[in-house]
């Protein structure tokens, strides 16, 4: 299918790790274009640029340790912004302490926490699940996403009255 205007954003300062994240999510890229940033600052600019172009942010996968502001601070900031609040947020980390994790959960409404090293299946499953949530909460028509996301949950939503064109 053609790509949607819903973006996946990956923010990670180590090039190899960033490559690995993007590679692991490549099955989704045809539908959800992936864009990357290597610092919180760059991530913020990228998000603003995409929103200005009328795109939507569906999923943000963010490393914890970043140059400048750390990942938790960035996610909290993005959660406070009305436009990025609906985006699903994943924290990727090797060494976040309990405090930071709690803060991310409470203030950024973090949706998932992935510990390094992760497996491709795990990351994909998390991404598919969260994007399914995003599409169900934000998209009027879920049909274009059935073959990449969780088709059972999307059909279930149609069955229970999610709007669809008329018979």
């Amino acid at each position: 299918m053609e790509s949607s205007d819903i973006y996946i954003i990956c923010i990670e300062d180590e090039a190899e790790v960033l490559d690995a994240v993007v590679r692991d999510l490549e099955k989704l890229e045809a539908t959800f274009p992936i864009d990357t940033a290597t610092s919180a600052e760059e991530g913020r600019d990228l998000v603003n640029k995409l929103l200005d172009d009328g795109k939507k942010i569906g999923l943000i996968v963010c490393d914890h340790i970043l140059p400048g502001d750390n990942g938790v601070e960035l996610l909290i900031e993005l959660h406070k912004d009305e436009k990025t609040m609906p985006a699903k947020k994943v924290l990727l980390t090797g060494q976040a302490g309990l405090d930071d994790t709690v803060k991310a959960l409470n203030e950024a409404k973090l949706h998932h926490y992935i510990a390094k090293p992760w497996s491709k299946e795990e990351l994909n499953e998390v991404a598919v699940n969260l994007l399914t949530d995003f599409v169900l909460e934000n998209e009027p028509n879920v049909l274009p996403f059935m073959n990449v996301l969780d088709a059972e949950r999307l059909s279930e939503a149609i069955r229970s009255g999610k709007t669809l064109s008329n018979e």
Binding site: A151, E152, S155, I158
Partner: peptide, 15 residues
């Protein structure tokens, strides 16, 4: 039932 709701439900059965 509506044809639409039925089809959506049956899709969950055949997956």
């Amino acid at each position: 039932m509506s044809n639409t709701a039925t089809a959506a439900m049956m899709v969950t059965v055949i997956i």
